[in-house]
């Protein structure tokens, strides 16, 4: 176990290093930020001075080394726009994003598992079709549009729920609903196919031969087996959650990392982009390791080594 964690941490470090490098390359490829940062009337001499002050005139490799050195000390420099430490800008916002994404993740899992189990237990084709077509309909609507529909209905028309910013429990309802419902159809499909795989397994026959009822066998025997591949799928789809957060945070004015990042990208605010990508990547890597550990805890056949 310790050995496993050590290896995974080493892998994580490598992943983060690669992401650091990729971020650097992509950000620099995107072009010179000074065109965006300076007013249009700036002449080229001043732009050059500015570039120099930001260290953008140095050879790429030197910039890269500086950047890596800084990253080791969690120093991504100061925001080109605001001047504050880039990492602070991200870490201040990280909790809001983590709360939203975390709650949405949990809700989406509970929702999918709950509905998936209801479908399996009732074994009603009609109920299944009903739930799945609802989920598919939701999947077909882009998150942005879905969020706006929610806002118009529950925010403007009925005025039940707030939709600007993060203020208390009720402000979570619509963003969480948007994010967690996006993956519902996918999860239900995964559950459905896993369940039908497991239902035909021989241990299910053993369970019935022992005197278990079908529902009992579905919950106690098939479910733990279904959970394993499901967790893998959920972990693989965390990326969705991040992409979804970008839209949802923007529409709901959520004070999280995602929309600050979008802003940083449009403004070529490299330090903030880099700090943000690294933070998100780190969270991503950690969550993936956790998912691995959880599924290995659930699956005795996996040895963590």
């Amino acid at each position: 176990m310790t050995r496993y964690v050590a290896i995974r941490l080493a892998q994580a470090a490598l992943t983060i290093y690669l992401i650091l490098t990729l971020t650097f390359v992509l950000a620099r490829m995107a072009g010179d930020p000074t065109a965006l940062l300076l007013p249009a009337e700036t002449n080229s001499e001043d732009a050059a001075i500015y570039r120099k002050a930001l260290g953008l005139d140095k050879p790429m490799f030197e910039q890269y080394i500086d950047y890596l050195k800084g990253a080791v000390h969690l120093d991504f420099g100061r925001s080109l726009r605001g001047g504050g430490p880039a990492l602070d800008f991200i870490t201040e916002r990280l909790p809001a994003t983590l709360k939203l994404a975390g709650i949405s993740l949990v809700v989406s899992i509970i929702l999918a598992l709950g509905l998936g189990l209801i479908i399996e237990l009732t074994n009603s084709e009609r109920l299944r079709t009903f739930i799945l077509s609802g989920a598919l309909l939701r999947e077909a609507i882009p998150a942005f549009v879905f969020a706006l529909m929610l806002i118009l209905l529950f925010g403007v028309k009925l005025q039940w729920l707030p939709f600007i910013g993060m203020n208390g429990f009720s402000s979570y309802v619509m963003p969480v609903a948007t994010l967690s419902s996006a993956t519902l159809a996918l999860y239900l499909r995964v559950l459905r196919s896993n369940f039908s795989d497991e239902r035909s397994k021989e241990y299910m026959r053993t369970a019935l031969a022992k005197g278990e009822s079908r529902s009992y066998a579905i919950i106690r025997e098939a479910f733990p087996n279904v959970l394993l591949p499901f967790i893998t799928v959920v972990a693989l789809n965390l990326g969705f959650l991040i992409v979804g957060s970008v839209l949802v945070e923007t529409v709901f004015s959520w004070p999280g990392v995602a929309y600050a990042m979008v802003q940083a990208v449009t403004q070529r605010d490299f330090p903030v982009i880099q700090a943000g990508v690294i933070m998100i990547a780190t969270v991503f890597v950690i969550v993936n390791i956790l998912a691995d550990i959880v599924s290995s805890k659930l699956d005795p056949r996996i040895e963590l080594s």
Partner: peptide, 17 residues
């Protein structure tokens, strides 16, 4: 209040936020 989405700005206006 930061409200980046123009649609949300209008919706906020309509609800008095």
């Amino acid at each position: 209040v930061p409200v980046p989405s123009p649609q949300a700005q209008i919706a906020g206006l309509q609800t008095g936020t």
